[in-house]
Simulated scan of single mutants.
Amino acid sequence: MHTPLRSIALALAVGLVAGCASQVTAPVRDGSGVSAAPVTQAAAPAGMHTVRPGETLLGIARQYGVTLPDLVSWNAITDPNQIHVGQTLLVAPPGTVPGSVAVATPIGGTAVTSPVPPTGTETGVVPLMQEPLGGRAPAVEPTPTVPAPSAVEPAPSAASGQWQWPASGTLIAGFNEASNKGVDIGGRVGDPVYAASAGKVVYAGSGLRGYGKLIVIKHNQEYNSVYAHNDKLLVKEDDQVAQGQKIAELGSSEADKPKLHFEIRKQGKAVDPMRYLPAR
């Protein structure tokens, strides 16, 4: 009698250990710093990240090789300093994460994505293809072939005057899609920073860590420009600015030296500003 009972007890113990090993728990702290009950965290799918205790948005951006504005825009984050343990974040560009679609246009008109269910039934959307009562799918006309677009879309002509240099200093760092989403222009603290093109100020502040005092200008439905590390901001949100208008004074806020970090973003994606700025 003892041997069967011992075998059953051993089997139950092995099953419990295997079940616990498939989950990861992380302690959660509330705003008062008091530890709360552990929260079970499942592994996030590719292109997404589940926030763990002690992590910051800037640290997550560096972990995945993306910029802080990327994470803010992709996840429609209103306060970059407030993320929560267990929160799931997109860490890849829109359209590259399976099961995500563009759903909003936050600061600067950048499209953001949000996870969606794998079928339309959860949202009340009827699938496009349904089997009829007879058990045969309706005939589908072949889709006409559309020529693939050019790999590199030509930039607006610099001669048209659509863009101008935002500062007069020397170029000290160029565009690199992996490590530098814009260009860095050197100078002295207090040097003028100009609007590279006419538009509306959609952000002016220092809420994004790593960018210091920052200005974002929306030019149209496609393009935004970004001006970071300023010493003094001379415009506020909702201001309309003209091309060449002084919008800030160059500085070193959250930077190792006085410089202007300048970006041009097309539909939320950073592009090389040197393809848009006139030759010097």
Rank of each mutant, 00 (worst) to 15 (best):
R188T: 14
G109F: 03
N75P: 13
S206N: 13
Q243R: 07
V271E: 04
T56W: 13
P273E: 09
E254D: 15
A13V: 14
G169A: 07
G59S: 15
Q243G: 13
A148I: 13
V72F: 06
G210Q: 10
F175G: 08
T25S: 12
V97M: 09
S206E: 12
V226P: 04
S225Q: 06
P106E: 01
G190E: 05
P38T: 06
R6A: 15
Q87C: 03
V193P: 00
G86R: 02
P45H: 14
Q82P: 00
A158T: 10
T96F: 09
K200W: 09
L58M: 13
S197L: 05
G268A: 03
A196F: 00
E222K: 09
V66H: 12
Y211D: 07
H2I: 14
N176R: 10
D30F: 05
T40M: 07
V235N: 06
Y276Q: 10
A9W: 01
H49Y: 14
T143H: 00
G95T: 04
V112K: 01
A196E: 02
V125L: 13
V72Q: 03
Y211K: 05
G99W: 05
P94I: 04
P27T: 05
A178I: 10
A11M: 14
N230V: 08
I107R: 10
G120Q: 10
G161Y: 00
G205T: 12
A36G: 13
V226S: 03
A155Q: 05
I247S: 06
T143S: 11
A36C: 05
A36P: 00
